[in-house]
Nucleic acid binder design. Structure first.
Lengths: 336, 336
DNA sequence: TCTCTGCGTTGAAACGTTTCATGCGCGTGA
DNA sequence: TCACGCGCATGAAACGTTTCAACGCAGAGA
């Protein structure tokens, strides 16, 4: 049904080896022959079969990426950065969604292994180290994204520092009773941000922190947490909320301001994490911790490609620093 | 470096054919042999090479999808729906971003053709019909997403009806001077929504519509449009804005309310399109037109798989109906 | 004239899987 | 007892590419 390199060779009156040379090392073939081959290709509408090429090469040219949640703007930005860098050097980026589930993550890694991917980028949900070690043994390098590791190269943001930044900001505004609204503490980023938060709290005897853990890092999960907070007696309510990401924060904001009768930042100051594009257009524009998401993605691909080319390379750990972006949700005086 | 089916066969003391049978038609092999083969697979850590399998099979089990903008929640939801349906039947979904650029779109289609994809889903940026016709000739079916077509199956939403819904709502609130803030009119959805809007305007002699076209369908593009509107003298300003999607609407909202001194919905009523999750947590919660994004993705995969199995099938066109979701940005009285 | 170089081209091997015609051994019915 | 059918297992062929050792040939140098 499809023209193969053999058909092209026959049509152009050359051998298959020559056709392949025209495609892959044009300098090795005379202009006249190349010309004839190109003509044959065009006439037959020949399209290279990547499966065969890959089989021969032993590995794919594609890079696999498993993310916690593609619908989260932080991750889609990250993916964007990675894709751009990958395409730049002739690689494709295959995206998978783990939904923070270890089994979905594992399925994608299996798939990537079957495809003999050029390399794999993971923002891990479960404990992937053993699995990645297996991949490495089979010649597939990996880079962890948005999390550090002792065993693999990684590109991450200093989440402990981010937690410190956030809580230090809240404390500097005079807030004393902080709630940390977060997802499962098994997610490293969630735990690290809490760790940073606690460090700051430890330095201020009169400040307390309470952990409100939800099942997911999504807007509805945040809304649930916010509803619970709004239902409390005012005296019992925290005067500040640090949310583990902006989606949670937006959910909290929604239920505090729109359903409950709690004002932000009057009654409760609110700070998110990631500084997604929507943070600034929220009901009350959201103070947040910004991460250089695109740069993270691009850097991860960069490192991955280097390791794929030179497997003996030592592992590296790039750590970006987060940045505080102050908006109305923590402003000293209520916005408007 | 990697164990092959041959190694497994040797280890288990059977032929390669038998190993393949164990993997693909377990019923054809005696339990005892199957047992031995499974043991060998485990011992050697054998992982099937998908490239070889694909080469033999003639086509990949993956489905390719090209979207206008993966970072747009409408599309990531859509992709999510598609992915779930695809995985359900043992297919992988490969995602590509066209960024509304015809050349990027073309690159992905080339890639998908080289990979002999099982099928292709496209939300088209450029004019893809000819290209898809080529793919079809080569045995790769395609389904258009979020756009109708005469030549291919499609799953879309009635954008003309959506435009009507939006503007009828604005008119019912007594608004007379409507601005349509949109992206390039070459994008079908953008044009269709305008068409719908114009139909309603045509029925009301005292209502006018003005088109404010931007280069992209993004938040910053919307902000630019909003800034321009805010800069006008109040008498010269529209009393309602219909934005071609929620991202634009959020941008408009941002610049009207936060930079300019225009109140929403007091001075200007604002309606978006897509009803993304963030619409409800905007500065002023956004009235919008909801589309069943996940169902669209799932349905598209469904149809694609049927066509892949039965290429002679007649083309189908599924059209979902949009739905109006009223929030504060068009409420009769200002919110709060 | 003969040998040596180097350029262009050739054709076969190899990548790892699935498929399919073939073969073998055993029990069953005639 | 023989033929037959049935259940399993076999191994070669095929998929389409890239690579590589080998080859032919023309021109240069001896």
């Amino acid at each position: 049904m499809n023209a193969s390199v053999k058909d092209v060779a026959a049509r152009a009156g050359v051998s298959v080896g020559t056709v392949s040379n025209v495609l892959n090392r044009p300098d090795k073939v005379s202009p006249a022959t190349a010309q004839r081959v190109h003509a044959a290709i065009a006439e037959l509408g020949f399209v290279r079969n990547d499966a065969a090429r890959q089989l021969r090469a032993g590995r794919s040219r594609a890079i696999g990426m498993v993310l916690l949640d593609v619908a989260n703007p932080f991750f889609s930005e990250l993916a964007r950065g990675a894709e751009e860098r990958a395409v730049e050097s002739g690689h494709a980026l295959i995206l998978g969604n783990s939904d923070e589930k270890a089994d979905r993550e594992a399925r994608y890694l299996d798939l990537f292994e079957e495809q003999r991917m050029h390399g794999v980028l993971v923002s891990p949900a479960g404990d992937v180290d053993a699995r990645l070690e297996l991949l490495r043994e089979r010649g597939i390098p990996s880079v962890l994204v948005d999390r550090g590791s002792d065993a693999f190269s990684s590109v991450s943001v200093d989440d402990v520092a981010g937690g410190e930044l956030a809580v230090r900001h809240l404390v500097s505004l005079g807030r004393k009773r902080i709630a940390y609204v977060c997802g499962p503490l098994t997610i490293r980023q969630v735990a690290d941000r809490l760790e940073g938060a606690r460090r700051v709290v430890a330095q201020h005897p009169d400040v307390t922190i309470e952990v409100v853990s939800q099942a997911a890092l999504t807007v509805p999960a945040g809304a649930a947490a916010g509803t619970a907070l709004a239902a409390r007696a005012a005296a019992d309510r925290p005067d500040a909320v640090f949310a583990a990401n902006d989606l949670l924060a937006l959910g909290v904001l929604q239920s505090l301001v729109m359903l409950g009768d709690v004002s932000v930042p009057g009654d409760v100051a609110l700070i998110g994490y990631d500084d997604i594009a929507f943070a600034r257009s929220a009901v009350v524009p959201l103070t947040s911790i910004r991460q250089p998401s695109r740069a993270i993605g691009a850097t991860a691909v960069e490192i991955l490609l280097e390791e794929a080319a030179e497997p003996t390379l030592e592992k590296r750990a790039v750590v970006f620093q987060p940045e505080l972006v102050v908006r109305a949700s923590t402003a000293a005086t209520p916005w408007r």
